[in-house]
């Protein structure tokens, strides 16, 4: 009886803990939750937010931010998440808990705020104006081996667009290889220049397709511009080496010594047989003469 009395409180201790950890309430101190987001929702910080999100968050929270990443995690699309203040989300991102790592040491404050802005826009794109059409002009400079993208609005006025991140790519067989800085923001005149990397291999004439693309699908429609340049080195194949006579080569490419050896053995064996047959024939013929 005494033991049972001892056990029950212990059991009772465990049950609330177990249910509590499953329910998982993450309380944020009110003064932290009241913190105000200093960043406006602007193309530049949305791009920063998106880049950080795809680098640090996608693995667990999923590409759609629905919590269906490699581990079961919080969905950012639910009301429970979105009804929190920016300050509360900021606190959770910076401090972390359980499997959620504290990003305070990795990201700057502004970067955390821009991720929050990105998450807000993800659920509620209507806070932004509808995506605009833009025009990219890609110009190559032969002397400096550099490329300049010129961004304007698509209408006839052609207002230059500043502070837009332009991604540069080189077209490869199975995908686009990025070059330039992590982010290349356009100047106030709507221009951004990057230098073409060394050692890029083109086709058999050295042609390389270069692409400039805006990957900010919130404010601008995905727009890209491509240009073919003869800046790559020539594609060198190893076909000559492949066509050499080797042991693994198919019939027409077998090594000469192998052909001589194999055919020599064949000729030798058949030669002996034929020689014996010939001699037998001669013996038979000689026998006939002898009998006569």
């Amino acid at each position: 009886m005494a033991t049972l009395k001892n056990i029950i409180p212990i059991l009772m201790l465990f049950f609330p803990v177990a249910t509590y950890s499953q329910k998982d309430v993450w309380t944020v101190p009110p003064e932290k939750a009241a913190k105000v987001n200093p960043l406006e929702i602007k193309p530049k910080n949305l791009t920063v937010g998106k880049n950080i999100f795809s680098r640090n968050c996608v693995a667990c929270h999923g590409a759609k931010a629905d919590g269906q990443g490699l581990i079961q995690s919080a969905s950012f699309l639910t009301d429970t998440f979105q009804k929190q203040t920016d300050g509360a989300i900021f606190h959770k991102m910076v401090t972390g808990r359980n499997k959620m790592p504290p990003f305070g040491s990795v990201l700057k404050d502004d970067e955390v705020w821009s991720v929050i802005n990105y998450l807000r826009v993800l659920v509620n794109p209507s806070v932004l104006p509808p995506p605009k059409d833009i025009r990219i002009e890609l110009a190559a400079s032969e002397e400096t081996h550099s490329l300049t993208a010129f961004l304007t609005t698509a209408d006839s006025v052609r207002v230059p667009l500043g502070e837009v991140d332009v991604h540069y790519y080189i077209k490869r067989d199975f995908g686009l290889m990025r070059f330039g800085e992590i982010s290349n923001y356009t100047s106030e005149k709507g221009k951004v220049t990057v230098s073409f990397p060394d050692g890029i291999i083109g086709d058999d004439q050295g042609n390389v397709t270069v692409l400039a693309r805006i990957e900010n699908d919130f404010l601008y429609k995905n727009n890209e511009s491509a240009v073919v340049l003869r800046w790559g080195s020539l594609l060198v194949t190893e076909d000559a080496k492949f066509n050499e006579r080797t042991l693994w080569g198919s019939r027409s490419k077998s090594p000469v010594w192998l052909l001589i050896l194999a055919n020599g053995i064949l000729a030798g064996v058949w030669g002996v047989i034929l020689y014996i047959l010939y001699n037998l024939f001669r013996i038979k013929k000689a026998g006939k003469i002898f009998i006569k």
């Binding site: 490869r172 067989d173 199975f174 995908g175 686009l176 290889m177 990025r178 291999i201 594609l235 194949t237």
Partner: peptide, 20 residues
């Protein structure tokens, strides 16, 4: 990562990222 040796580029099958 999969790619063309002559082009010196490989592409990751999951992320689609292409690297040297």
């Amino acid at each position: 990562y999969f790619g063309n040796l002559y082009e010196n580029a490989v592409t990751n099958g999951t992320t689609g990222e292409t690297v040297s």
